[in-house]
């Protein structure tokens, strides 16, 4: 089970609001970070890798869940 570090009040309240799969909650929290990064840094190898990594992480977690169930 993936855990969100809930010692931070904001993360704790977000985590409680979700009450869902931790992996997906982490992806939801990372989503805005990825979008802000590509908006500020533009298209580069780094941002392309970051965004591709985000999409891959989603697909991988989905498949991992499917294999585990």
């Amino acid at each position: 089970m993936i855990r969100i570090p809930t010692e931070f009040p904001l993360l704790r309240s977000l985590s409680r609001a979700g009450n869902w799969e931790r992996g997906y909650e982490i992806l939801i929290l990372c989503g805005p970070v990825v979008i802000v990064a590509i908006a500020l840094l533009g298209r580069s190898l780094l941002t392309t890798a970051l965004t591709a990594g985000y999409v891959l992480a989603f697909v991988s977690y989905l498949l991992w869940n499917a294999l585990g169930s």
Partner: peptide
Amino acid sequence: VRTIWWIFLLFTFVSISLLWL
């Protein structure tokens, strides 16, 4: 409804990333 919003939010981020890629 809360879970629907979470799913929708997650899919939105993935969609934006996919289109940008």
